[in-house]
Design a protein around this nucleic acid. Structure first.
Lengths: 351, 351
DNA sequence: GGATTTGATGTGATCGCTAACATGCGCGCG
DNA sequence: CGCGCGCATGTTAGCGATCACATCAAATCC
């Protein structure tokens, strides 16, 4: 009873309802349904009510593909990243995703096979073909940054974590400031100078940290030891650490990330050099494990989540400003924070 | 010169080329262009040649949105995950992305705000509206697994890392086997029994590891100490570790993940209990830092990347089997591997 | 009170592609 | 020699939304 015509019985819809189904049920045209969905002012309260009722009755869900075809916008953003296994990029990606959700966007990930320029351009291209409205590129290496300068100009782009110093907005942590914080902390404790283990040479972040360290030493008139070149891995931190154990004058090391600092700690421990009594160590990143290293690591905290969400907002504003014909926003720097734990102390009496 | 008609001059296309532009230039219909793109057999080599030339000349790129609207398939897959900051999920996601790329699919990420059932259902819903062809759910908690049993049936779904024991395919590491490997290793070294720090009670993986540990002890006729309940964090590992230092009979601990093991190591170190001489410790996961803990950690390696890529392949096969009307594939278990380092040794003389 | 604005709604084209069917030609076969 | 078949290609109609414009009634103005 109640069902007059089995053609029209909406009991179990074989085919998902579309806009005109809703319109038919509500006694209006599909266009009016569209108006209700998009919140147009020109719909009477009574019809809006009826349309909404019809939508829930049919379990109607708008088809975003069709909408995307008609509007030319997908409300989807792309993220290009190299290795999302590492704590930094993973946290950034997470921050991006959360902020995207809040802004009503979806995220498509394209990870790189290699770090060369062609891979970056290819990844951007893939995302573009897929119809994203804008792209975030998590840049770590100089070459990726360069690739961005040769990237297509017809799609909004934002560089994350580091990037080229012109052309497109960059959102990143203030690396030089972080390095300064670390170095000054050690100098303030009374160390004559501070050694440095860098990240890979090709990494922009690594370069910025090294130059922050260098500048701080110079400003303090401290001698500048030759930095050791690392690659972010605990393994290399360990090997470089072993090399450093031979230097009896060494009292303080600023290591460009926590993983390498972990390796260094291990090497020092094996060599019987006590930390922080004999040697002070500062890391960079503040990964969740750092407080439980032996000893707990003094380090520079980067708020990756903030970098992610901030860069997403910059991208969204860029997209909107393109549509509104306004000036696009610029990038910004997130301040780092020194976290003092047990791996740093005043230097041993040297006399 | 060369350009006869400024209407047709393809010099700098204001509007990106579409299929019929290519067709016009090649002197064929748009449909023939479509045939070339989709590799239809019924195109003569000569026309194919001409069409391809026209495509490159115009810089033509197919519009995937339009194709999706026409075919009903987007070649996009969704991934639902809770915290992609953790090493496990992050690596799995990475494996998924690589495999997706290889299979010609894109990945859309939807991360959860909370772990309750509603969030999971909502995330699946969001992805579905966005038009994904299938969904991978990285499940860690019992509640998410249950949510999957109430999930919509009209879209292919695969559970990753753990999941409900029926209904949908699950791809995961064999947790019980891993726990057995760890426990037996300690028993084989001569320990009378093995203590256990679990993950959170609500975690399926945690439950499986605990029951593997329990079964192994029972099979060996060893006494079964009360397990301590953890939460995966180094912080909690540290606090539980401090509690364990008071137990003088303790000689071996199997910790449900490496982060907690790190905290435990730290607690033991502070209490002056030597590892592995007095107490042996085995972790789970084999995160990249584990070899550089103090001491280097014996642990059970999970191949997250393999879990990711395997689950993606299962999902793709599920989608294809739905179309072909075949039986969908089932889940599978990835074997874990014991990695022996320096945190385990024979127990101290007890007499 | 007739001209004009305003608000609610409908109509038809369009986004760029694929699916299904139509066409026309050449060739083999009985 | 005519029939039918297969192949290369074209034509037309969707896919499910939005957009631009048309329509029509009620409200407003002078």
């Amino acid at each position: 009873m109640g069902v007059e015509d089995d053609e029209k019985a909406p009991s179990r819809p074989r085919r998902p309802a579309i806009m005109s189904d809703v319109g038919r049920l509500a006694g209006v045209s599909h266009q009016t349904v569209s108006r209700v969905i998009n919140g147009s002012r020109h719909v009477s309260p009574a019809t809006r009510e009826r349309v909404m009722a019809a939508m829930t009755e049919l379990g109607y869900r708008p088809n975003s593909i069709a909408r995307a075809l008609a509007t030319g916008r997908t409300r989807t953003l792309g993220v290009v990243s190299f290795d999302t296994t590492l704590y930094g990029p993973a946290s950034t990606l997470f921050g991006i995703e959360r902020a995207a959700h809040e802004a009503g966007y979806f995220i498509m990930v394209a990870s790189l096979k290699a770090l060369d320029r062609a891979s970056v351009v290819q990844a951007i291209e893939r995302l573009r073909v897929q119809g994203v409205d804008g792209i975030l590129v998590i840049v770590s290496e100089e070459e990726s940054a360069e690739a961005l300068l040769h990237a297509p100009l017809d799609i909004p782009l934002v560089a994350v974590e580091s990037g080229p110093d012109r052309g497109i907005p960059v959102v990143a942590v203030d690396q030089a400031e972080g390095a300064t914080l670390a170095t000054r902390h050690l100098l303030d404790l009374g160390h004559q100078t501070v050694h440095h283990i860098t990240g890979p040479l090709s990494s922009i972040e690594s370069q910025l940290r090294a130059s922050g360290w260098r500048a701080t030493l110079e400003a303090a008139g401290a001698p500048r030891p030759e930095p050791l070149i690392g690659d972010w891995s605990a393994r290399t931190g360990y090997h470089l650490g072993r090399r450093l154990t031979r230097d009896r004058s060494l009292t303080a090391v600023f290591v460009a990330n926590d993983q390498m600092a972990l390796g260094l700690l291990r090497a020092m421990h094996e060599a019987g050099r006590r930390i922080p009594e004999e040697i002070s160590v500062v890391g960079f990143d503040d990964i969740p494990e750092s407080p439980y290293f032996t000893p707990p690591l003094t380090t520079v905290r980067q708020d990756f989540g903030e970098v992610g969400s901030r860069s997403l907002r910059v991208l969204v504003r860029t997209i909107e400003s393109v549509q509104a014909g306004e000036r696009p926003p610029t990038g910004s720097l997130v301040p780092p924070e020194l976290v003092v734990r047990a791996s740093t102390a005043v230097p041993p009496e040297s006399d």
